[in-house]
Amino acid sequence: MLEVRDLACQRGEQPLFNGVSFDVSAGELLWVEGRNGSGKTSLLRILCGLSPAEAGTVRWRGESIHDAREALLHDTLFLAHANGLKDDLTVAENLRFDARLAGLHASAERIEAALRACGLRERRDLAVRYLSQGQRRRAALARLWMAESRKLWILDEPFAALDAESVDRLAAHLGAHLDAGGLAVLTTHQEVPLPAGRTRRLRLAH
């Protein structure tokens, strides 16, 4: 469903990668590997249409993402390095606004369920500024428990700052997403139990 051909990217005058091609079909996960500065984040940002590629094409459901941007955005959930949470709002408020903005039509129960799944139920009314790094990451990840309707998950270092229990929970959730016919593209430096048999690796080298 996601087809990438001959993608090239440069930052400033520095070429990051060249000729990157891959396919991800329904029920598959692509694990993008590479050293710091090899262009992993840039690749993810190109995939969701935030940054332009130097050369090459990205197709989603057979259409170039530049021509069918809206279709891509309807299907995509992007979790960036930054958590996308407002410090002064509570965890629950953040999730509620987020869901409304993304058009996820999340009911109060679904938000509760997502909070419970991330182990943040007791922190729901706490302003994000009082959370630890790991808790913030979990609050950002709670979106994934409301985003079953989004087929393509693009996750930049989703496991960073998570404890072992949360890592397992997220890995299991990713598995369920793939089972339901979803796709995921993610980067991580950690050794994590990604769904076996359905995970492919892409190594970005200089």
């Binding site: 955005l73 992007f78 960036a80 949470l85 407002k86 903005l101 058009g103």
Partner: peptide, 12 residues
């Protein structure tokens, strides 16, 4: 804080 990215990536 990254909310701007989320804003740009909504389908609206």
């Amino acid at each position: 804080d990254g909310t701007l990215e989320q804003l740009v990536l909504t389908p609206h």
